[in-house]
Design a binder for these strands. Sequence first.
DNA 1: CGGCTAGACTTGACTCGATCAAGAATAGGG
DNA 2: CCCTATTCTTGATCGAGTCAAGTCTAGCCG
Lengths: 155, 155
Amino acid sequence: MDSSSALRQAGLRVTAQRRAVLTALQGAAHPTAAEIASRLVDLPVGIASEVSRQGLYNVLDDLTRVGLVRRIEPAGSATRYELPSGDNHHHLVCRTCGRIEDVACAIGAAPCLDLPNGNLLDSKGFLITEAEITWWGECAECATSSPLPTEGAVA
Amino acid sequence: MDSSSALRQAGLRVTAQRRAVLTALQGAAHPTAAEIASRLVDLPVGIASEVSRQGLYNVLDDLTRVGLVRRIEPAGSATRYELPSGDNHHHLVCRTCGRIEDVACAIGAAPCLDLPNGNLLDSKGFLITEAEITWWGECAECATSSPLPTEGAVA
DNA sequence: CGGCTAGACTTGACTCGATCAAGAATAGGG
DNA sequence: CCCTATTCTTGATCGAGTCAAGTCTAGCCG
């Protein structure tokens, strides 16, 4: 589905900026707002190439709200965005270089909303809408290049 | 155990600032660095009451490194800190007011490191050190006061 | 007890991501 | 074609956190 119809279906006006952002997200791993902005610059002719910072945040907010974009907010780094892939997946973040890998949720459709204690949460009155699982660690490259700097690290 | 011996056991020098921060954390829910700073001001006499911002971050880093403090980094809000309670628990964050509730990990000791697909992660070469689960939703109060502001909101 | 030094703390400037506010532009229905 | 609510732009501002450089002090040693 092209971006225009996707936007229309979502009930959003079709604007050059929104289409450009959607296009820029294709093929990008998990770009930050800044990375998206730089991608916009070298999009093929015919698609808007400049979006103001505020406009970019607006667009990303709108797209996220209607579900055309998924927001990832790893602690300690800028918010990242991705096109929802349909599968319910989580993320693996490298503490050293910040790289993010996708991890498929192997259990089922939306299993991560299953809570440890069934209705434990109802007892707190919380209305859960989303579960987020993040694994922290070190990616292969960082693990080999720097063996987890501990106190006794060799100079 | 008092803060002085805790610090000594952890191999850290005992300073007024560190003891003050540890004291300030007691009885606090999940304070941000700023909230800790304001708590420091009205600590009982005899415990340092002023810590510079940089000093506070240093202290929190040090305490976190040795495990005397646990860091919580909910997306979209400042880093929060808590005294580790021994049990492996996760968090429930209100999207509206930012409030955080603890959720006990009901499954076992450190079950959350069990990965969906066993060694799926090894295939990516990641060395996992920590799993973090966050449930997003709306707390009871926010749910009643504002029924999830949608498009049709009344003016 | 007094001095020494690595480790700890303070000050102040600065970065970066994100937001606020107010005005200009435009999509799309009539 | 025109009108208006929605969307975008500009520019100031904010808040959390970091950097750098100098001062202070806990705790060891004589």
